[in-house]
């Protein structure tokens, strides 16, 4: 089985506990206005890689996973679009005793299999980093071009399985930082006992050059990076090391 890989980062420390090897998969159906990686959008791009080869590569980093309580995070793009590949990869990692984390927006493609495939994936996933783009459905649509419902539905599946989950929320000044929006995110944590932490991520402008390179108009040119002091106040509640 092969997957489409956008890139590999051997030393990740922001996407799950400990030191993480982060696999960025190619392809995303959403179009978030602040996306840092528009080069991951194209469903057909990236480099094809055999699951065996990737697994072999990941095993070489085991000493760091063990030393730090880390593991492998699959991110993207949107990894759920290559769920079969991720399931296969995570299955092997689990078997080898390596912690697996899935960084996703919850865009689970329609399947008429009674949830079997989703079940298969989640059974080999130790932690989900679920990106909530916006709690309000209209604002969500405007921000991402997609419905918020799929993320919330995915979160419910995670609650049913009691799968440890961190919520991740990008704080974009003027777009996602209103007090009601922040409060809704906090409420999601309160109503989902499987959610062990919230990662508030500051909007930054370091990915804009990729939009320019690709010739896609960037609609947030006027939006400043998130204020550091505001972020500090939000982070008081963080529980990232909850594994």
């Amino acid at each position: 089985m092969t997957g489409r890989i956008h890139s590999l980062e051997s030393f990740g420390t922001a996407d799950g506990p400990g030191i993480r090897f982060v696999v960025f998969l190619q392809g995303c159906r959403w179009r978030c206005r602040y996306c840092h990686n528009p080069d991951t959008w194209a469903l057909q791009g990236g480099k094809e890689m055999e699951v065996d080869a990737l697994f072999g590569t990941l095993l070489r980093y085991r000493s760091w996973f063990d030393a730090s309580g880390g593991g492998v995070t699959v991110s993207g793009g949107e990894p759920l679009l290559q769920a079969a590949f991720v399931t296969e990869l995570f299955g092997r990692l689990k078997h080898a005793g390596i912690h697996t984390a899935l960084d996703t927006n919850g865009d689970w493609p329609e399947e008429s299999d009674g949830g079997r495939k989703l079940e298969a994936l989640l059974s080999v996933t130790d932690l989900v980093l679920l990106d909530i783009k916006h709690p309000d459905s209209e604002a969500h649509l405007a921000l991402t071009g997609a419905e918020a419902a799929s993320t919330l539905h995915f979160l419910d599946c995670l609650r049913q399985r009691s799968l440890p989950t961190w919520l991740r929320y990008v704080v974009v000044p003027g777009l996602t930082d209103s007090p009601p929006a922040i409060a809704s995110i906090r409420r999601l944590k309160d109503t989902h006992p499987n959610v062990t932490g919230i990662q508030w991520l500051p909007y930054h402008r370091m990915g804009i050059f990729k939009w320019h390179e690709a010739g896609i108009p960037y609609t947030l040119e006027e939006v400043p990076a998130a204020d550091a002091a505001f972020m500090d106040r939000l982070r008081d509640n963080s529980a990232e090391d909850s594994r």
Binding site: T13, G18, I19, Y61, S63, W64, D66, A67, E240
Partner: peptide, 13 residues
Amino acid sequence: FRLRNFGALLDGY
């Protein structure tokens, strides 16, 4: 996390 990861970086290497 930085303090722990620093040591783990060396341990791993």
